[in-house]
């Protein structure tokens, strides 16, 4: 391990991080503690890094998972049909996408005649992000193809 600083004994940022995370061996730890007691500068850096870590962990860990229900496990992909919301705002894009999909599906059908029997719904999900200033081919979009039983059989044909 490297010891960097103005004083040859001063701690590198890496060492301080590893010390806080308790990822250094006992021998090194003892040496570091001795130095922290003697060196005001390193002691301050230790305090600051600890605070940085505390603030980060606190602000990202705000989800109370106790209130999250564990759903019953399903062996297939969840049918997406029930949850997708449509916004009127996007109707223009949806219409444009519909034409694109219809034509691409037509080509697909040519290659695979069974698809007609399997496909029940085709869903265009434009809800992720639409930036009206960008051309259509730069829009992020997901397409879901759902079969008769509601299972998702094809998805995420992005950036057509």
């Amino acid at each position: 391990m490297k010891w960097k600083g103005n004083n040859s004994k001063c701690m590198s940022d890496e060492m301080i991080q590893m010390y806080i995370d308790n990822e250094i061996d006992e021998f090194e730890k003892a040496g570091m503690e001795k130095h922290f007691a003697e060196c005001e500068n390193c002691n301050l850096r230790l305090y600051e890094q600890k605070k940085l870590i505390f603030d980060f962990k606190q602000s990202i860990s705000l989800v109370n998972i106790e209130s999250i229900e564990i759903p019953e496990f399903k062996h297939e992909k969840t049918p997406v049909i029930a949850r997708k919301k449509y916004r009127l705002f996007y109707w223009k894009w949806a219409a444009a996408a519909a034409i694109l999909i219809a034509s691409s599906l037509f080509i697909y059908k040519k290659h695979n005649t069974n698809i007609q029997d399997d496909v029940r719904y085709i869903i265009f999900d434009m809800s992720s992000e639409v930036d009206a200033n960008k051309p259509l081919h730069e829009q992020s979009m997901s397409i879901y193809i759902i079969d008769k039983s509601g299972k998702q059989i094809e998805n995420n044909i992005n950036n057509l």
């Binding site: 980060f56 602000s59 990202i60 705000l62 989800v63 109370n64 998972i65 209130s67 999250i68 992720s128 992000e129 992020s140 997901s142 995420n156 992005n158």
Partner: peptide, 26 residues
């Protein structure tokens, strides 16, 4: 795939509003 996610999508049933703001920030 989704690239950018707009702010309002950060809502979580298990987080109160003030905490949610902090969470969005991070």
């Amino acid at each position: 795939k989704t690239k950018r996610i707009t702010k309002h999508e950060y809502e979580n049933p298990a987080v109160d509003e003030v905490d949610n703001e902090k969470n969005i920030e991070v």
